[in-house]
Amino acid sequence: MATTTDAPAGRAVSGEDNLFTIEDLSVTYPSTDGASRGVTALEHINLNVGKGEFVSVVGPSGCGKSTLLSTVSGLLTGFDGRITVRGDTITGPHPNVGVVFQEESTFPWRNVLKNVEFGLEMRGLGKEERRKRALDMLSLVGLEDFVRSYPHHLSGGMKQRVAIARTLVMEPSILLLDEPFGALDEQTRIILGEELLRIQRALDQTVLLITHNIQEAILLSNRVVVLSARPGRMKAVVNIDLPAERDSTLLATDEFAVLVGKVWSVLREESLKAFAQEQKQDQTNHEETAHA
């Protein structure tokens, strides 16, 4: 870590301080042309997330945010370092880890209820039990009136809520969110963020959110991790000392602006680097094409 803007998290978490840990995680993709040097996507990532904590990861585009999510969710194997959930080392998809993807992921051939029941059904839970749990979760996310609707009748924001409910109903120890509101308009995004916060508080859910939206990260989180330009290293960890009970009216406050400034001052530098990297890459590609 090059700079740490604040001391490590001093917040009170109930019992499990190390519910989720990432120890010295590095990910290198093998080069496509078979040459010896691969592309390093992430380097020396260390993170501890306590029970009930909401941590966001922001970073410039191409910094390895999505790689981080694929690794932590167990979908990408072959990394250096160790990831644990409740003491279990992650070597592949794990029942304690729930993922909500950025892209639309509801099953169009299943209605809302059946979508939310999906994971429970695959795990062999009885019909009545899974129905009950799915209905409870649907009322928590505010979709109790759309139980029989099919996804194509729902708005983008509602579909994401279905996806979140489908993951939460599995009662994962940690919920991973990959830009879950990335495709939504700004207003919907803020409102759904508030909803997410309410749900997170209600379940005391541990959350790791990947996003490129600074406001969203600050509004929702206890801590914001800023990644550097590629290869992604932890550039800063900013503690968000906003009141636990919060909503989007905070966006207009001075303390919020100070936090945005704090995160952005680090992120700006890295984004400029990422931008320069991209241009250089474009230029190299251009020259290669010219030579060919």
Binding site: G74, L75, F101
Partner: peptide, 11 residues
């Protein structure tokens, strides 16, 4: 993405 939902559930 739909397949990844399944894979993340260890199907």
């Amino acid at each position: 993405t739909l397949l990844n939902v399944g894979r993340s559930l260890s199907m």
